[in-house]
Design a protein around this nucleic acid. Structure first.
Lengths: 250, 250
DNA sequence: CGACGCAATATTGAATGCAATTAACAGTCG
DNA sequence: CGACTGTTAATTGCATTCAATATTGCGTCG
């Protein structure tokens, strides 16, 4: 992959996430190329990559369509991610953390603590949170020292909303809405992070795996609750409340 | 993906598996195109896909090289596959098998029994065995009813030797060689199949998962023993004994 | 009036050609 | 004699062009 292709792919991904193309709507190569400001070749390659990422569906000689993900599919993907991350936690616990890994991990946890303590809710805080969260999940995978596991996890995280980066801020909830609920959810998630770390550090492999799976499962349930039962969607910005924020995505 | 591209990709894959390109050796687009009998465009696309499959490594502006897989990497991938298939078995057990699924599964098991009972060791028998084995693993995944799980499993199986299809027949072993040892290994594997099925049918989820993980682990250990400790290889036909047979691969 | 078939058009699929980047080599200077 | 730089050859990256396939609209026939 070269620079231009990466750019085109990222831009197209963003376009889809932003709902420029509705689910089921065909992506015409010429139009995509125009909007991306590149040639048809690059547009085509970008579409091919997003297809392998599972974001687009291709019918031979009929082009690509944006794939719609049901709440069920997202939940399924998150369960798989949880299983893989759980395996990573178990492997990490069995292997034991090096001094450096332990320090890195604790630094990430401290960043999360600081963010929660600050009480900030602005956009920068959200970006920081997403970065912290991503770093935590990456640390778990790295500590497992299994390249195939990392690759598999990245793949399953390619689905919109299935990635740990995909956090729904300020979406309305049944138990009262908005900022306070979000804050509670983030605090709970970060407690999970601490617990996973303690279990791994204590070499409690199976328990670490269980905690990690539960962490993913909670995230899946939260998202399912927020997204409702609609069977298909891809325009994330059109979700209930329209206040979805996923700045660090893609 | 269109027909020509699929063909080109499969052919190139086979070329690499057959050792036409050694590990680390660069794949020049023009040469690949010539050997495939297609244009540079298709060769390029095929290479791009094999890159995403993890079979090739690409350095920007410097093309692709065949990736060498260490015995460790193969073992890691198989462990991940085992975890995913174990998850599938657990989900299948929790969900319960439909009448049709149960029948399909039993038919696959019966095919394996018949093959073992026949005592055949010819090439056709091997092909049949590989097909039966693939069907069994596919049945486990299908019974889990989780699309993301299937996709993740397919991905991790893309690595050479990591797929359940990749069976080493007649490779020399430490405990006496060849046909008899292979026969014992296949019989043991098929006992695993039966046990997994019984556990799933009995709704024993965690036990089914464990059995499936162990099934994969055994396969990984067998391969590791056969492959030895060499740190890098990709020319499968050049493995010890040179009697490797993997007809249904790719 | 509806259904089928044919032609025109639009869209994807593949190949060739051109530009940009990189590696290798020779020549020159220190 | 070794290191550096300018130049050349080779290779990838991208754009354009040509060909194949599917879709749509219209006309005709039942």
């Amino acid at each position: 992959m070269t620079r231009h292709l990466d750019d085109a792919k990222a831009s197209l991904r963003r376009m889809i996430y932003d709902g420029l193309y509705k689910a089921g709507e065909p992506l015409r190569e010429v139009q995509v190329a125009e909007r991306l400001g590149v040639s048809r070749t690059l547009a085509r390659l970008a579409m091919a990559e997003l297809e392998t990422d599972g974001l687009l569906l291709r019918e031979p000689n009929r082009g690509c369509r944006v794939r719609a993900f049901s709440a069920r599919e997202v939940a399924d993907a998150i369960r798989v991610r949880g299983e893989l991350e759980g395996m990573a936690a178990r492997l990490a616990a069995e292997r034991g953390l090096s001094r450096a890994e332990r320090a890195d991990w604790e630094a990430v946890l401290a960043r999360g603590d600081a963010l929660l303590d600050s009480g900030r809710q602005d956009k920068a805080a959200r970006t920081d949170w997403i970065a912290m969260n991503a770093d935590f999940h990456a640390a778990v995978l790295a500590a497992a020292d299994n390249a195939a596991l990392v690759a598999a996890c990245q793949r399953v995280s390619a689905m919109p909303l299935a990635s740990p980066d995909a956090i729904l801020f300020d979406a309305p909830t049944v138990d009262g809405g908005g900022a306070a609920a979000t804050r509670r959810a983030l605090a709970a998630a970060h407690r999970d992070h601490h617990e996973v770390f303690r279990a791994v550090a204590a070499r409690e492999g199976e328990r670490a795996a269980w905690l990690m799976r539960e962490h993913a499962r909670r995230s899946a349930e939260t998202k399912a609750r927020l997204l409702g039962d609609r069977t298909g969607y891809s325009r994330l910005s059109a979700l209930p409340g329209g206040k979805l924020v996923r700045p660090a995505f893609g």
